[in-house]
Design a protein around this nucleic acid. Structure first.
Lengths: 230, 230
DNA sequence: TTAGCCCCGATTGAATCCAATCTCAACCAA
DNA sequence: TTGGTTGAGATTGGATTCAATCGGGGCTAA
């Protein structure tokens, strides 16, 4: 049975390179955008990508289509592709959507999370309080919140939420840079309230705390419109 | 200025056929699926589509990628494309999501709708009560609800909602067939309650009515699992 | 009779090539 | 100097072609 997943000589299983080139390129480009390697507004040239990944332009075009569907890339016919840019209004809209659907997703997860899951959640919240640089905070914050959503196997809601996180990633980074310096502790307070509600399996309270958490962030966002200029 | 949009001889502006083939094919296939021409599970062959639209397989693949991103088509590498099929659980999930985000979208629209908008909304609700066949009911119901969302210019929320309507369209049709025979009037009652709340510009009440409307439909759905078999 | 295997046709995936469109810089005129 | 225009270069869109993979029919053997 397992013979199919390994070769006789012990060489790497040679992942079927056929039929996945577009997806692979899309995954790498997506990661590069999320890391912050390509800022919003950056132009993406098909041949560049093709050369960088050792493929022809055809799978690159498929990758760009995928990322366009995710909203990470903006395509204009006969013209080219750019890393998507968000206006303040669009970002606020996404936060409003998150405010409605993340509590739902959380509710579906609360009864299914193990005690170990909740423990590691608490560790993440603690680590975040001690985090020094912005990148580490962002990584931990993302992991904290998305870890709340891995217990329930949803088919669309999970993807939706992940997608909203991805599309706003760059602006969360920029916002965190200016906001962290203000030294607000309530973010951490809300994280611990959230863990506490989950541990008590109080889905209603968890929903309320999370909705408020997202809402407060959205309102803070409005106070920093400079993040969206240019 | 307007010379650019018309030719000297008065011939049709010759819409730029370059750079839009994929989108055009996607639009037609999407319509065919929504109409019910292709049932879930139907296999889609690339060459068929290409021949039917007088194009090569390349733009067809782009169209399939687009529809896959919308969830209307399911692609399997090296194997083919099928019209997406929904399980009862997935459909319930989508209704739960709708229950959360459609009230939000409605709230954004309520203060922006004109009295004329609301009048035609009421006419639609009336027409629906008199509708005889299922197809007409579906068309009117879709128009009624989506008309509630055209006043506010949202960049993502509107697309999200439309997408959820599209993905569940086939199952709404099947469900309506078996449910309408039961002669339940409360659907129409709720529609009129909704119009009334909008006319009073009572966004909170409108949200409540709509959420309840969607929720009731979801619960009814659970009572008819046969729709999702096979 | 039936389970398993293999081979062949059908279908999709990717590369190369050519055509259409856009960008951009230089140029010209006001 | 500045605004608009035009042409060449760069870039994307689509067709054709070849290669890789999958599904199914028929064969073999127990």
């Amino acid at each position: 049975m397992s013979a199919a997943s390994g070769t006789v000589e012990g060489v790497a299983p040679e992942p079927p390179t056929h039929g996945a080139a577009g997806a692979r390129i899309a995954a790498e480009l997506r990661e590069a955008i999320l890391i912050g390697e390509h800022a919003p507004g950056t132009r993406i040239r098909q041949e560049d990508l093709a050369g960088r990944h050792g493929a022809s332009r055809l799978p690159v075009r498929e990758a760009l289509r995928m990322l366009e569907a995710e909203g990470l890339v903006t395509l204009v016919a006969n013209t080219g592709a750019w890393v998507s840019r968000l206006s303040l209004a669009e970002c606020e809209e996404m936060y409003q959507i998150r405010e409605r659907i993340e509590p739902l997703l959380l509710r579906l997860n609360v009864p299914l999370m193990s005690e170990a899951d909740i423990d590691s959640l608490e560790l993440l919240a603690d680590a975040m309080e001690r985090s020094e640089d912005v990148e580490q905070f962002l990584r931990l914050d993302r992991e904290f919140h998305l870890s709340c959503y891995t217990a329930a196997e949803t088919s669309v809601l999970g993807d939706m939420v992940l997608n909203l996180w991805n599309r706003t990633q760059h602006y969360r980074r920029a916002f965190t840079r200016v906001f962290r310096s203000e030294g607000d502790r309530s973010v951490h307070h809300e994280h611990h309230l959230l863990v506490s509600a989950i541990r008590r399996r109080d889905a209603d309270e968890a929903e309320r705390v999370l909705a408020g958490h997202i809402r407060r962030t959205r309102l803070e966002l409005t106070r920093h419109p400079a993040v969206f200029e240019n």
